[in-house]
Design a protein around this nucleic acid. Sequence first.
DNA 1: AACCTTCCCTGATGGC
DNA 2: TGCCATCAGGGAAGGT
Length: 293
Amino acid sequence: MPELPEVETIRRGLLPKIKGQRIDGVTADGSKVFQMDPELLGLHIPGQVICDLRRRAKYLIFELERHRLIVHLGMTGQLTLRNPGTRDSNRFLRHPVTGLQRTRQHAPDRHTHFQIHFATGTSVFFRDVRKFGKVYLFDISDESVEILFSRLGPEPFSESYTLKGFLEKMGTRKLRIKSLLLDQGFVAGVGNIYADEALFQAGVYPGRRVRYLRKYEKVRIFEAVPDVLRKGIVAGGTTISDFVDSDGAVGGFQEQLNVYGREGQRCYRCDSVILKIIVGQRGTHYCPACQKR
DNA sequence: AACCTTCCCTGATGGC
DNA sequence: TGCCATCAGGGAAGGT
């Protein structure tokens, strides 16, 4: 599940390879991931240069000369480069939930929803098995793009992410802290994995009601969120099932997870058995000794 | 307004 | 062997 570190890892991998490249052609299928007529891609995109690739929350924004192509990877979305000079891989990563996933550059298949081709022969593929991803195309002068981002909270690495704002937004809210961290309007970019890891690092039980948190606990959560996200980026993201970077390689942060996916295993810090519960309809992992109720 | 639940979607898995 | 329920979850929609 691509969260901020996975999306940022993709951005950093793609940017140097595609910046300044002129788009030669585009192919797209009729998938529901497209939030516009997919034929508009072929109509508008070819001929334009990719000026930049930015990220806002979990969205990737391809800045073209006259358009913005915006991609949200949803649950299983992948954005990869394919170099015609490199052999496609037949290696797979095995996962009990989502099964076999390619781990290297691969040829397009039935889940590949669009391809951007460059004159060099290189392509960018968007592949999404479960189709929870979304693709948008905006004219560069279309200000309605802001509607897409208007409800997003602060970027955890920006100056808009302040303790003061963090505490104020918590206010006297009654929901559970895990659910609040998943709310993209509270802080942008946190998903299920990093929410669990941040709460472990902060030593806070995920089911705690926000209004009953002590101030020092809120401060620790405030600090833990960017900290675990940063560690995730440094490790190249987390691969539980589908995530691959722009070169098709798996991430490394799954090796550093303290609680996520570790149900029944021992806590590295205190040797207690990690538990899994449901919070806000999401699987939630925690250490009952390090994160007391 | 705040909060909670349901839905979308696919492929692997386990029970019968 | 096949069939069906179950699970994973980001985010929007619908309900209370």
